[in-house]
């Protein structure tokens, strides 16, 4: 009896994707467990914030101030460039790129199964999180939300063996599909012709073609290109820019307008 029930559930979930709402509801029951397990990590980071000497704080403050000044200087130029970009886009009759809105979230759990690359965040539908929402850290794209509960959500990382996303080479706009292979430090580009202009060190950014990820976020850097004349396609490996196994503070992106 129970076996048949379980099998039905498995097929409804895996083959027909019918259990999304149920999973979202049940994930609320899972949230307290993740919250509890994350407690020691939060306590230690809290205590390391409280128990700091004055000189360290002053030093850090000075450092942050100089960095902020540096970034502000860069932003000045950025404003002019953005205005120019908008004007040029207007000349080309294409829609304007609007800056994306972000929500800062914190990672509270990692899936225990080493074969799955998923993480749990402390923001859910109460904060406006939705299924399919892109996730970034400071360095690049991390993944997308696959399950949103009220107060927590589950994210599939770009290196999971079941994940693929459309990218383009930043240098020349060559498009490709980046697929996870189940290793945290590698994504592979599928079906890249051997004659394609792609080199080690090229930056891959989201192309926005899948209509899921916004355009232009860095995804990975090419680390290996193997062109074997016996093979129909070149083997291209890239290392994700985001610190997938380290980042704790992450950004959820809200797209404000359709950018084409």
């Amino acid at each position: 009896m129970t076996g048949v029930l379980a099998l039905t559930l498995i097929f409804a979930d895996v083959r027909f994707n019918q259990m999304a709402a149920t999973r979202a509801t049940l994930s609320n029951a899972a949230y307290p467990f993740y919250w509890l397990v994350d407690l020691p990590a939060r306590l230690s980071s809290w205590s390391s914030q409280i128990l700091v000497t004055r000189s360290t704080l002053l030093e850090e403050n000075a450092h942050l101030r100089s960095e902020s000044q540096l970034l502000q200087g860069k932003m000045l130029q950025m404003a002019a460039l953005r205005a120019e970009n908008l004007r040029l886009r207007a000349l080309l009759n294409s829609s304007a790129l609007v800056q994306d809105d972000v929500l800062v979230a914190e990672l509270i759990g990692v899936t225990p199964d080493p074969a799955r690359h998923q993480v749990v965040l402390n923001k859910g539908t109460d904060d406006g999180v939705f299924v399919g929402q892109p996730l970034l850290d400071a360095d690049g794209l991390m993944g997308q939300v696959i399950e949103a509960g009220n107060a927590s959500s589950r994210v599939l990382l770009i290196t999971d063996a079941t994940h693929a996303l459309p990218v383009q080479v930043n240098r020349n706009g060559v498009r490709a599909i980046a697929e996870g292979v189940g290793r945290l430090d590698v994504v592979e580009l599928r079906h890249v012709a051997s004659t394609t202009d792609i080199e080690v060190g090229d930056l891959l950014v989201t192309s926005g073609l899948g209509r899921r990820f916004p355009v232009g976020y860095p995804v990975a850097t090419v680390i290996e290109v193997t062109r074997d004349p016996g093979q129909p396609f070149a083997v291209v490996k890239a290392r994700p820019n985001a610190a997938l196994n380290r980042s704790r503070h992450v950004l959820l992106v809200f797209k404000q307008s359709v950018a084409d």
């Binding site: 379980a6 099998l7 498995i10 049940l26 899972a30 589950r154």
Partner: peptide, 17 residues
């Protein structure tokens, strides 16, 4: 098993079965 499935992000029913 169902609760563990949700915790692990496994297919619903995997651990239950």
């Amino acid at each position: 098993g169902i609760l563990l499935d949700v915790l692990e992000g496994a297919a619903l029913g995997q651990n239950a079965l």
